[in-house]
Computed example of a mutant assay.
Amino acid sequence: MEIPIGTKLGINNKLIYAVVFALLTGCQQQEANENTSAVKLPVYQSNGISASARLKGILEQKQECLYVNDILIIFPEHSAKWDSEKEALSYKGKHIRLGSELDITGGSGDFEQDNLRIKHLSPMCDHQKIWFAG
């Protein structure tokens, strides 16, 4: 029994679509996993003096960066760590998970003036509003 050519093409197209769909779904899941665990903490070298204003809000992750109220948080060098398994920030003896409230002192910055002080800033971070944690 011979299968008509049109039917063979239909089966091949369905197979191709299924494979492409499976690959795309896998890539999207991998990207989602990478986005939730890959955090790069931008830092600055502190001279021991910091502003004493307060920033309070929910700790959020966008791309590879941590924000509170859409403000990018920049930490003093060697003061903060990210735990990708727990999705938590360790800072000044506290552990703050994503979605929890972060209450942090410091002061706002101006990226145009302060960018030379900042290290490890991912190009994926939105740095229109920045906060130097104190």
Rank of each mutant, 00 (worst) to 15 (best):
A18S: 14
L66E: 09
I104D: 02
V68T: 13
Q45K: 05
I16M: 12
Q29R: 03
I96W: 05
S100L: 04
I74E: 03
D114E: 12
V68N: 08
L41W: 02
S79Q: 10
K56Y: 05
L24S: 13
Q30F: 11
P4D: 14
A133D: 00
D126I: 05
Q30S: 08
T7C: 01
S108E: 14
K56Q: 14
A38P: 03
N12K: 10
H78C: 00
P123Y: 02
A22V: 14
K92Y: 03
G6N: 13
N35E: 11
T105Q: 07
M1H: 12
A22R: 06
F111T: 02
L55G: 05
L23E: 10
L66M: 12
N12C: 12
G107F: 07
L24A: 11
E64Q: 15
G48S: 09
W82C: 03
L59P: 04
M1S: 13
L121S: 00
D103Q: 11
Q45G: 00
T25F: 12
F132I: 08
G6E: 15
R54S: 14
Q61H: 06
H127P: 04
L55Q: 06
N13Y: 10
L24P: 00
E85Q: 08
E2A: 12
L9P: 03
L59S: 05
L24I: 15
Y44K: 02
I49S: 13
R54C: 00
G26L: 14
M1C: 08
G93H: 03
W131C: 04
I49Y: 10
S84K: 15
G107R: 05
N115D: 02
M1I: 11
